[in-house]
């Protein structure tokens, strides 16, 4: 999808927080010299349909929404088993993200799952349950100790 200068300006504004008013779209449109509100709304819908906009809505802080523990669980899975294994991982409701990543010398893990739970033990049980269902591969849990930074990316700035 070809993005115009105005599209890019709009992406900058929409990547932040909507104005805290009863008419947030009108107020965003006001910042884009003369863009009619209906056109702004149509553009957001176009972004969604084209897939460049994954979601438009509230972004929560997870640890405050009752998920005290979160672990990045990394599994070492044989190449030919990846698709099947990933299926088992993503079917767990405690998993929010699942990626296949490149490996590096000394770091043989290729499947990553973000596991959320109310306690560390809950995360461990989820990780172990997944491991059992996929033939007990080598895996490890990396609990988060501290959040140093969490922001949304800023595009075109």
């Amino acid at each position: 999808m070809e993005l115009s200068t105005r599209d890019k300006q709009l992406i900058v504004l929409l990547s932040g927080d909507l104005p805290e008013t009863l008419t947030p779209y009108r107020d965003v449109a006001l910042r884009l010299q003369g863009l009619p509100e209906e056109e702004l709304l149509a553009t957001i819908k176009r972004f969604k349909e084209s897939g460049i906009l994954r979601r438009f809505g509230a972004v929560l802080r997870h640890h405050q929404a009752g998920f005290a523990a979160n672990a990045m669980v990394v599994y070492q899975v044989r190449e030919e088993e990846i698709a099947r294994t990933a299926e088992a991982i993503v079917s767990s409701p405690a998993v929010s993200h699942c990626y296949q990543r490149e490996t590096r010398p000394g770091w043989p893990y290729n499947l990553y799952a973000m596991v959320h739970g109310r306690t560390k033990q809950q995360c461990q049980e989820v990780a172990a349950g997944i491991a059992r269902s996929i033939g007990n591969p080598n895996y490890r849990l990396l609990f988060s100790v501290r959040e140093y930074k969490k922001t949304s990316p800023s595009f075109f700035q």
Binding site: S15, G16, F47, L60, R101, K150, S152, F155
Partner: peptide, 23 residues
């Protein structure tokens, strides 16, 4: 603090950005 923000989550790659995870 429950809601961090209300807005768009864009697909970085589809916007032409390069992403990675670093350990």
């Amino acid at each position: 603090g429950l809601i961090r923000r209300i807005g768009g989550s864009f697909d970085s790659r589809r916007l032409g950005y390069v992403t990675t995870l670093v350990g």
